[in-house]
């Protein structure tokens, strides 16, 4: 088990390294001149030359990438011409827009995104698995048809419509909830939860449709398996069949999908963040992309990739805990 974990961790590091290399090369080599971008539109040739030097853009690509990695693992020094700016590990460089450390910007944005991801996951898992199980058990009935329609509608409604509707109904019309503003968890847990409620529900419901359908089909598949027939033939009540025997097998694909979705919220939940004014990583990415702020873009992509990879490792371990036939090798 420990060996397996180490192996997977090493593999994960390798994946993230490859990802970082690809992103680095794509963004720094392909379009435009990073020095011109970093310096700004009003720079003259001489200033651009200085920036090139500061950013070591004349070094071979491999050396540049090496420095980039060095920054992440041991930190890096930047000379701004007059003074030296030290950037502690993990350092993703300095933003082109305001010379702020990218790492600081990420750390600032991470709590909002993480709050959104965890809460939305709780919503989509409970709603998705719940409705999925219900429609699997009531297959052919009215309940199932209604649930199928609801989940379909859920999948088909983009978050900027459902979110807007929720804001209108719950905040403007009924005034049950405040218009969301992000309150950090560390500051006021209660306010944090109340303000996050709508974003959680909006994103969670959107995703839960997918989970409901997946749970339904994999539960039905498991219920059709021979070992379920065995226990049915031994008088085990239907509810125990589902809870004790079918659920475990049915949840395997749900775990796998959750890992991928959870990871991709880091950087991918732009619409939800924008809709509810959450200062999250997704917004940061959009802003950075618009302004071609390369260090920020690269950092966000690498972080998102790392989140997906880590979530998948957790999923694999859960998988193996649920099904002991999966050999952790």
């Amino acid at each position: 088990m420990t060996l397996y974990f180490l192996r997977r961790a090493l593999g994960a590091v390798a994946v993230v390294l490859v990802l970082s290399a690809v992103v680095y090369v794509t963004f720094y080599v392909a379009p435009g001149d990073p020095a011109r971008l970093a310096c700004g539109p009003r720079c003259n040739t001489e200033q651009i030359r200085q920036v090139r030097e500061q950013l070591s853009l004349d070094d071979p690509l491999l050396t540049q990438y090496w420095h980039f990695l060095q920054g992440i693992f041991v930190g890096q020094d930047y000379s701004t011409g007059t003074s030296v700016l030290h950037c502690d590990a993990p350092c993703f460089g300095l933003s082109y827009q305001n010379n702020q450390q990218v790492t600081d910007m990420l750390v600032e944005r991470l709590p909002a995104t993480a709050s959104l991801a965890v809460g939305a996951m709780a919503v989509w898992l409970s709603v998705g698995i719940g409705t999925g199980l219900m429609s699997a058990l009531r297959r052919g009935g009215v309940t199932e048809r209604v649930l199928t329609w609801l989940t379909l509608a859920g999948t088909a409604t983009p978050v900027f419509i459902s979110g807007l509707l929720m804001l209108m109904v719950f905040c403007a019309y009924l005034e049950w909830l405040p218009f969301p503003t992000y309150v950090p968890l560390t500051e006021d847990p209660e306010q944090w939860a109340w303000n996050m409620l709508l974003p959680w529900v909006a994103l969670g419901l959107l995703e839960s449709a997918k989970y409901a359908r997946l749970t339904r089909s994999s539960t039905l598949e498991t219920l059709a398996e021979d070992h379920i027939r065995t226990f049915r033939a031994y008088g085990v009540p239907e509810r125990s069949l589902v809870v004790r025997h079918a659920l475990r097998g049915a949840l395997a694909p749900v775990i796998a999908l959750t890992a991928a979705d959870f990871g991709s919220i880091f950087g991918g939940a732009v619409l939800t963040e924008k809709m509810f004014g959450l200062p999250g990583i997704g917004q940061l990415l959009v802003d950075a992309t618009q302004k071609i702020d390369l260090p920020v873009v690269v950092a966000v992509v690498v972080i998102t990739g790392a989140a997906v990879v880590i979530a998948n490792i957790v999923a694999d371990v859960l998988y193996a805990v649920a099904d002991r036939r999966v050999a952790l090798r």
Partner: peptide, 22 residues
């Protein structure tokens, strides 16, 4: 339910798939 297993019990063909793998 009381009959199944209590009065009459069934043994199935494929013993691998007929038991809960978990």
């Amino acid at each position: 339910r009381a009959l199944r297993g209590g009065v009459a019990a069934m043994v199935f063909q494929d013993p691998l798939s007929s038991l809960d793998p978990y």
